[in-house]
């Protein structure tokens, strides 16, 4: 079953086509990679998927529903979430609350309940707090739950972004370069964690990544973008041997 179905979307900024009639789909439970050289349009694709940009042309279907042009919060509530290439946590807010914010959309109590401090309200807040702490424990961040998010070291901020996204109870999580700036060791443990959360939360994952080792290691299928156009799609071994991909990354060999 196709969880996400992207049908020839185009994003035009003035005279520049950042993404040009791109089509791909992700099956439920799949781990797909989206790769391409710098400026290929990968993050623009994420921005269209999550409602930051409205595609100039084309349709995006999520769970059989057309979502192009919907507001970001509506798309998030449908079950698609993301992390950011450049970390965008709520820096002045505690680590725990960063996670809780994503989950507030699923809290059912009314403001009247809160005003009267009813049992519904107290239980909902308590349950959310516990659940968020549990999510934090995936990365061992629960001991820092009450620190300001901005005070965490870089690697942990990246991990917190993933936890915060999990807080929204997604079906599809779009990870925008989760390993950026991480060393070999950290990247390796991140790979394992991504595999684990995918299994534990029954997630579908779309991954943008520069680290080829990470992409080839965990992705089942890969789409390669260059200058906003899809140049190749297939399993890691197909991608590694594709002349078009090698050309896009390394340039054409000059023949003398």
């Amino acid at each position: 079953m196709k969880l996400l179905d992207v049908r020839s979307i185009t994003m035009q900024f003035g005279g520049l086509k950042a993404v040009d009639s791109l089509s791909f789909h992700i099956k439920k439970g799949e781990l797909m990679g989206l790769i391409g050289p710098n400026g290929a349009g990968k993050t623009t694709v994420f921005n269209m998927l999550t409602g930051v940009y409205k595609p100039t042309l084309g349709e995006i279907h999520f769970n059989g529903q057309a979502i192009q042009g919907r507001k970001p919060f509506e798309i998030s509530r449908l079950g698609m979430t993301r992390t950011f290439q450049n970390i965008r946590l709520f820096k002045e807010i505690s680590v725990l609350e960063n996670v809780m914010i994503g989950a507030t959309q699923h809290q059912k109590y009314s403001m009247l309940d809160a005003a009267l401090i009813t049992a519904d309200y107290s239980q909902a807040e308590k349950a959310l707090r516990e659940k968020s702490l549990e999510l934090l424990s995936i990365f061992g961040l629960e001991s820092k739950a009450y620190d300001e998010a901005g005070s965490l070291p870089y690697g942990e901020q990246r991990e917190l972004e993933i936890v915060r996204a999990l807080g929204t109870q997604p079906q599809l999580i779009c990870l925008d370069e989760p390993a950026a700036g991480m060393n070999h060791q950290e990247t390796h443990s991140l790979m394992e964690t991504i595999a684990k959360i995918r299994k534990d939360f029954n997630l579908t994952v779309l991954l943008i990544e520069h680290d080829m080792k990470l992409v080839m290691g965990i992705c089942e299928r890969i789409v390669v973008l260059d200058h906003g156009v899809k140049i190749e799609e297939g399993t890691p071994s197909v991608i590694q041997n594709s002349p078009k991909v090698i050309e896009a990354y390394l340039g054409v060999e000059e023949v003398h």
């Binding site: 507001k71 919060f73 809780m100 507030t104």
Partner: peptide, 26 residues
């Protein structure tokens, strides 16, 4: 500090765009 609206308010005041992507109706 104690309600979901308050949390959402603080999130929006820190970063409106990101709050929206985390499901907050800004």
């Amino acid at each position: 500090f104690k309600t979901k609206l308050g949390k959402a308010m603080r999130a929006v005041s820190t970063n409106m765009k990101v709050a929206s992507m985390m499901g907050v109706n800004t």
